[in-house]
Design a protein around this nucleic acid. Sequence first.
DNA 1: TTGAAAGCGGTACCAG
DNA 2: CTGGTACCGCTTTCAA
Lengths: 338, 338
Amino acid sequence: MATIKDIAKMLDLGVSTVSMALNNNPKINKNTRELVINTANEIGYIKSGIAVDLQKQKTNVILVVITDASRSYFSKFLSVVQREVAKYGYDLLIATLENSSKTAERYISEHRVDGVIIYTNLIGEDFLRKYAHKDFPICVVGHYVEGDNIYCTFPVKEPTLGISATNYLIAKGHRNIAFVKASSSTLGTPRRLNGYKKVLLSNNIPIDESLIYDAKDSTFEAGYNVTKKIIKDIDKIDAIYYSNDDIAIGGLKALKDANIDVPNDISIIGNNNLPESSLVTPSLTTVASNIEIDTKNIVKILIKAINKEPIDKKALEKTYYNATELIIERDSVKSKKK
Amino acid sequence: MATIKDIAKMLDLGVSTVSMALNNNPKINKNTRELVINTANEIGYIKSGIAVDLQKQKTNVILVVITDASRSYFSKFLSVVQREVAKYGYDLLIATLENSSKTAERYISEHRVDGVIIYTNLIGEDFLRKYAHKDFPICVVGHYVEGDNIYCTFPVKEPTLGISATNYLIAKGHRNIAFVKASSSTLGTPRRLNGYKKVLLSNNIPIDESLIYDAKDSTFEAGYNVTKKIIKDIDKIDAIYYSNDDIAIGGLKALKDANIDVPNDISIIGNNNLPESSLVTPSLTTVASNIEIDTKNIVKILIKAINKEPIDKKALEKTYYNATELIIERDSVKSKKK
DNA sequence: TTGAAAGCGGTACCAG
DNA sequence: CTGGTACCGCTTTCAA
């Protein structure tokens, strides 16, 4: 691989001259500049980004870590993050945790980027605390991690979600409401379960643990399979609250396959408002959060931290990510006649 | 940020000793090693991956470039690539082209990784040719790019796909078959259109250009919208071949909304076999390719190239990526009684 | 306008 | 077993 030294030698110039010329520095005489650039092209010179990063102590890239790119929920998130970091002149790299967390951990533990956005709970909190640094800020989305140079938009360990959905079902006259947990690596499930229980209790509906099912995964298939079990108890259930749309869509299919009419025989509600949720039949009633605004906010904070601008952590933590839960009314929930 | 020099100074040791100790080199006395490692932990030493990469001239990471992470088709691909590169001890980074190709281009043009897998046609061929190098091999998936150190699994510019699907529809007695193009950045569309035309012709069915529609995007919504237009011509159409499942699913919804019965009024077939395709009603007949095997193959070739092992390009190009098209029969196509 | 030299933070050879 | 030293490829003063 040709380096600037080679070019310098060829042209009998100093390396600094070549370096500056290649960066189009006006200090270098125009003729020299062009000469350098031309020969660089001719010999196929390729700049080593790594050497530049080392020297500059800055990569201009941000890493975002997610569990699994296959859920459209994350794709939407990624696309917003991508657009936002670009506004600040940063590049975005993505690491998923599909098969191992090695890539992500290596990039974090060796500070190979300027900052990180974590949207998963599969990376240990101690690990994050160990490597977060004033020169390496970490933003955590969707859950709370205490630590210096770690910025979260959640003020507490486990906020209560799922309130809107549960309230909505109750308002529609349902009382025997099943809850279906998604993957255990999912951040929303425990919170929505929280809210579900809380709302039930405050409506004097006792919590029946046998009505809490576990899909164990966040895929259509997992939703399908768990729903086959639910069908056995179908007589005692008015409505099902699925922890996310992925499993709800699978569940809907299982119900249809069993000739159970949604919403006439049973109502179901999902969570997250995936694009496909409006396309299934009946279209899925679900709950949406404002991912756009919150995501913008997160990127802004990370960039601030990278630039060492002051951040008011207390004020920041007042911004609940995901906290607004808006019911998207469609056709899978029916008001229950009494 | 503390460096090994700081540690060396603190402990009155040489930098090489510290470096080796930190890497657990058995040449270093166990006591010294532990001493070094302990003090490193105490002062919060963090190794600079970038410095290591520069010195070793190797990053151990592979970059994969895709257009858009939100299509589950790509997620599946990513997950296989991820698993495969891990087997060879490499890490995987992902760059999408959602808002700009800057990240991908920077990583390629500055050789910031050991190799690249490109699954998009949004990066110029000349660009790839310029930066591919024996120390920086590039694998191109899904289309053909001529060039040294560029490895493709497609032997020709534009292979013919879509044959199975078109044949299948014809075998089911359909003759007036519409074709719906997906996003123009999609690699499959032109090929499937090729195959569609070819098969029609060989069955003595004249090609009616007015039966070729363009969804212009690969989203559910695009499929929905284009299908609203198709509905106006519905009387002259027996079946629709959508270039991918994404638009087919959207199209299905549009047909249902217009009270058109699939498959009794019209048959539709998609392409790619997305997870959601089995969940819509009626479930979508579609065509699947063996992404798993081909993806494994691609990773193997890239690693070989990185290791400078010989690659038989001619033999390689005999492996058609995506070339096996398997019809997944479900409920959206009906045999036409004559 | 150009160039020598001092790094950036490591690694690895070679001598002791 | 330990340490001096020469890089890896580039940027950036500072002098000439």
